[in-house]
Each structure stands twice: as structure tokens, then as C-alpha cells.
Write a protein that binds this DNA or RNA. Structure first.
Lengths: 207, 207, 207, 207
DNA sequence: TATGAATGAGTATTCATTCAT
DNA sequence: AATGAATGAATACTCATTCAT
């Protein structure tokens, strides 16, 4: 069975896409070399050019697939999005991207301008904008983006910084805190509460 | 001041360090080339090897300096740290690092393992740990790291993702929301409030 | 006429030969790629190897065909050859060779040794030798080759150098001058004229 | 002495230029590889990029030098030009360009567009235009260019086609025929003239 | 001390060609 | 009979680094 599969356009393409996804996620666009990707996929490097035209073409294909997965998060009702984002970020199962969350994968390639553009479009035009619809009260964009930033930050803290507690925490451990933050950001201005505690100074944890 | 000696050793070193800081911040460790750095500094590239041994040695020196600046944030009372972090992240004036916040600069090089290690040490062993002291109640590490993640996320959202509202927001615009989140994370468990609203389901922004 | 056989062998061969002729003429042997040729012909590149064995084999076939066309010039009486050569060189209609005169096409490939040999054989053993028969007087080979060189030069000047006046000139414009030169080269030693003016040093073909 | 010369910018540059001149002349721009050139020069290929920026940069330098040599032909009085051209073309000593006359060298690279432009400028704007001044009578441009074409053709016939008689002929053998052709092309085209004014001459062969 | 020439392994990409189906 | 997957050597070019002067 292994032998016969050798000359199979689909399988080779898929192997290259899979290897590329991992390499680009772990090393970023520039640092990932077509040779390494091909070696990981077990095929000749020139097939990358045959099937994808160029390294950039391969990257585009990888990014497109990632974008579609990301877009799937937006399919459900907007109210479910914050929780979906957390689940996505916390899921351990990003073996398709070499253990990296897609956000981190995108970040890793952000020095490459085309990759940067894609990332901006997908993040800003994607969940950042969808979150905005959930906000009640003033500054909807800013508050939505702060929640988005939190998700991004959790993602980065877990898989890049690997801060110990957050990296090891489960969804169930993180969720209560995350929910409170999401509520605080998205909910109405919380007048009563800020009225109650508003008098204290700049010290955040002061009292 | 004679013709023959245009720069003393210290000035050359400093010029190289400055140029390297900007390049590493903007392009990441791998993509920044010693020649570009040397050209920016106006000196011959081999001086990098003379003074710092290798590209890695130069990077280490840059990172050490950055780490010291970061450590300065920890000098004051712990209670001031959350606000200091926000001010740091929101400040526009990172011309020393080519306009990038040091976190982003570190992230950019995080594919390079030695750089990654340094980053982990500085972030996890730095403000993440310091924030822990501020937490009242259970899960201190996790809650501290969630606040750290938020700061990281804001930083990334502003200068990498460039999400529009957050990127343009001033400290004064962000601070109220940030403060509320910091309070929610660091403060005691908020029993009363969760008691009030605890019955609602998982939907965060639902009703 | 069935679906399964879109092209018979002959048509495919012919299409490849035609496309190759144009590409080799325009770009030269080395620069013309088998893939481009196959794409122009609308067939798979491997058919080149199937039908012609190699790129070189394809080139040989093209050159052979070109040689036969060239040889056709030699069919008529030798005395007609000079005029035929000019007509051939000046004719605008070399669409079979992508607008290039066959001489220029050969020249373009002359860096490739097998192509070079073919070109030598066809030119030297072809019209250069035939012209020799026309020469009256001494140095028949040299004088024939000078006329051949003129034809070659006109060809090159028109389609490679594209010198303005010559490139735009019609057969009728060029012919009078060309005829005078051909006469001067091929004709007998020009006795009367050299007799008249023969004593002065400036004499051209004189003694 | 041999050892000490090793690290010498000027010598390395010169060696590269020399090797490049030969390779470009013999094989044309595209077919000549930077590695071959470097090997011929006995230096590392990367020095080509150090000193000339790119293969194109190296070619430009070579072409510039060739152009200056060509332009030197135009320094003397116009009346001397036809003879100078013949001498140049017939000289055996083109070892600097690997035995190829500069015209042929240019022709070899004419598939490469920048090289083609240079060639056009140098040939059309060079001796073709200068020859025009010598023409008496109608069609000065056309007649000048026909003489230019003859020179080009002799050059091509000698070093590309290698037609036997012309390739082996000396200046002294060719000159009488060439002079008659030059006269016929440049002079006031007619019979009476040779009778009437035979002794003064159009100064074609410069007594 | 420090300038800059040299190097060799690396990059993405294209080539003619072969082999399996 | 013929499609197209695979290959390996070649291309121009950049890299960090070393060595000679």
C-alpha cells in the first residue's frame, strides 16, 4: 500500500501542505525553507513549485486553509463567539500546525508583508469585527478589540511565552476568569458598580 | 579627535547595539542581517564579530539591555505594576526599538531558540511573577498570567495586528477598561457579584 | 474524430516542430525551454522526448527542415542566387520562424556547439559555396564569401541590430545598391575601370 | 609574488572582468554562468556580487569597457572610419574577448533585452551614424547602414560562421575588395563619376 | 587595531529528463 | 499510447563568519 501511493498528486500536495503548515507555524514564513518542508513531506522540493508555483503560493494555500478554519468560528451565533475563541485557543490539539495555535502561526510570519496583510484581514475583519456586535454601551470597537487582544494574549502566553500556569491550565480552569473579563468588556457600562468603587485612585489593586 | 580614530570603541559598540536593537525588533533575529545592522551603524560588519563574537552575542547584549529596562518596571511598588505595564505598552515612543514595543520585539525573534529562552525568562520570571504577588484569592499564578496575557495581547494587537480601534486608542481611552479588567483579575473572588449574576448560563454576552 | 484521440501523431509532431522553430529562432537553443515549446504547441512536454528523443533531437529536426528551405534557394540557376538571397533576407514574412530570418535564427543558437556545426555546414556548404561559381576572376572563394557576409550582415542589421534605415527599407530601395555591390564582387576584375584609374593609389581592386 | 597577490581588490575585479568578457562573448549573457566566470577568474563566485552587485552589473561593466573601445574608433577623422572598421574586424587579436570580435560578442547576448539595448545604442548611434556623414548623394542613412551591415557580416562570417576563405583571409587580402565596396556605397553613385573624378576619390581609403 | 577580501553553506527557483501508471 | 509525477543538477544570489594585511 505504501509503495503504490507514491505517485499520487493529491497525496503529495496534501503532504506538502501539512508539512508547510507546521513549518510556517513554528518558524515563520522566511525562516521556513522549501527544502525543509519538502524533506518533512518526504518529497522532492521541486514539487512545491510544480504544485504551488512558489513558496509564496504554498504559503497562500496554507493560509487560505487556516482562514477557512478561522472563519468557521464565526458561523454560530455571535453570542457564542467569546467562548468559542477561548475553546479554540485553549485546545491542545493543534498538531496540524505543529502545536501552535493559528494566531501564533500567523504572528510568526508577520514580518513577511503578504502574510501580514492576510493576518490583519483575517483577525481584524474576522472575529474582532464580529465581537463588536456583542458590545453594549460606548466604545464598541475598542472594547471588542480588547477582548480580542486578550484572546491573542492568551494564545501567545501559552504557546510562545509558555508562562507556566496559563500554559498548563485547562479550559475549565481558565473559563471562569475569562468569562468575567468578557462580561466586563462586553456588558453595559456597569454604572452601579463603577459608582460604588469609582472613588479609588489609579492603583488598580490598591484596596 | 584626530582624523585616524573616528570613533572610540565605546561609541562604535553603542552604535552597533542601537542599530541591532532596531533591526532585531523590526525583523526578528533570523531576518536581521549583520550587514544591515553594521550599515545602519555606519561601521564595518566585522566589528560585530570583534566586539560581540557572533550575531548571537550581539543579540544577547541587546536582549540584556532590554531586559534591564524591563526590570526597571519592577522597581516600584507591586501595586503600581499593572498601570505601569499599560503605560509602557501604550506609549508611542519606542524609537529605540524601531517603534516596536519590547514584547513585540521579543516575539519577533521567538522562533530562534536562544532568543526564545531569554524571552521566557524575562517575561515569566519578570512581570508575570511580580503580578502574582498582587493577586488576592485563589489561582494567583493563573490570574496574574491572564493579566500578563492581556498586556501582551494589547501589545500585539496594537503593533502587529494593528487592529484599528486599539491601535489608535490613547492611554486615557484604554485605561478605564483595562483597570476594570485588572481589578476583576487581581481582586478577591468577587463573591457578591458572582452571587448576583451567577445563575446565568455559559453564554457570556448572551441576554 | 473520436474524443479519445485529439491529435494524431503527425499533427502533434508538426505542432511541436512549429512551436520549436519559433522559440529557437527567437530565443536561441539554450534559452528556449522544452516546456515553453510544448505549451505553445498545446501538448505535454514529454512528447518531445517521445517523438524526438531529446531537446537536441527536436532542434535537429527543426534545423533539418530549415536547411531544406535554405537549400531550395539553390535550385535555380546560380546567376539568380544573389537576388534570391536579398529577396529572402528582405522578405518580411518569416512568421514560421517568429519573424526572424533563418540566418538570425541560426545565429541565435550559435553558442550551442551542435547548432553551430549545423549552421556552418548549411551556410558554408550552401549558398557560400554556390556563390563561388558565379565569381569571375581571382579569389573566387573570398569574393563569394564577402557577398555572403553582406547578406548575413543585412540580415543581422535588420532584425538584430535594427538599424533604422535598413530595417525599414524595402527590397526596391535596397536592391540597386545591393546589385552594384554584388556586381563589384562577382564581376571580372573591372579591367576598364581599373585601367582608367588604375595608376592612383586609391584604386580599390586594381592590381 | 603569486601568493601575495591573492587578496587584491583590483586584481580580483580585473580577473573577473576579463573572464566575464570572454564568457559573455563566447556564450552570450544568459548562457554564461557566474560560477563559470568565477572559476575562470580563479576566485569565488560570491565576489561577483560583492564587486558588481549582480550578474547584470558585471555585464554592464564589461559592456561599458567594450563600448569605450568601440567609441575610440570614432575619434579620428570620419574618412578613416571605413578602413578602421575593417582593420578592427579583421584583427586576430581579440583574445580579450575570447577571440570574438566585440560585434559578435554583442550579438551573442542580444536575446537579453538590456544587452540588446546597449548594442543598438552602440552600433546605431556609433559607427552607423558616423558613416552617414561620409555618404555623398541620396539615401545616406541606408547606404551607410549597408556598409555597416557589411562590416557586421564580415565579422559574423569570420568568427561565427567561420566561412573558410574569409576566416583565414588577412587584412591585405580583404582590403582591396572591401575598399571597392565602400567606394561604391559611399561615393556619389555613378559611372560618370568614376571617369570624371577618379583621381580625387571619396577618400574612402584615405590616401 | 581594524579594514575588507574571501569563503562555503545556505536561499528560492528552473531546467531537461525519466519513470510509473 | 500517452499523461503527469518525480528527480537531480543547475541557476543567480545572500548569509554569517574567518583570515590576511
Amino acid at each position: 500500500m505504501g509503495e503504490g501511493r507514491r505517485r499520487d498528486r493529491g497525496a503529495t500536495r496534501a503532504a506538502l501542505l501539512g508539512a508547510a503548515r507546521v513549518r510556517f507555524a513554528r518558524e515563520g514564513y522566511e525562516a521556513a525553507s522549501v527544502r525543509d518542508i519538502a524533506r518533512d513531506a518526504g518529497v522532492d522540493a521541486t514539487l512545491i513549485f510544480r504544485y504551488f508555483g512558489s513558496k509564496q503560493g504554498l504559503f497562500d494555500e496554507v493560509a487560505k486553509a487556516g482562514g477557512q478554519e478561522g472563519a468557521a468560528l464565526l458561523d454560530g451565533p455571535a453570542s457564542a463567539l467569546p467562548d468559542l475563541l477561548l475553546r479554540s485557543v485553549v485546545s491542545q490539539e493543534w498538531h496540524q500546525t505543529g502545536g501552535e495555535h493559528p494566531f501564533v502561526a500567523m504572528l510568526r510570519s508577520s514580518a513577511h508583508e503578504p502574510a501580514h496583510r492576510r493576518m490583519q484581514e483575517q483577525i481584524c475583519g474576522g472575529f474582532m469585527k464580529s465581537l463588536e456586535e456583542l458590545v453594549e454601551g460606548p466604545d464598541p470597537a475598542l472594547r471588542a478589540e480588547l477582548l480580542g487582544a486578550l484572546v491573542l494574549g492568551i494564545s501567545v502566553a501559552r504557546s510562545v511565552v509558555r508562562s507556566p500556569a496559563l500554559a498548563d491550565a485547562s479550559y475549565d480552569q481558565i473559563e471562569p476568569y475569562y468569562r468575567r473579563l468578557a462580561e466586563a468588556l462586553l456588558g453595559p457600562g456597569d454604572r452601579e458598580r463603577s459608582a460604588q468603587t469609582g472613588e479609588e485612585g489609579a492603583d488598580v489593586a490598591g484596596q
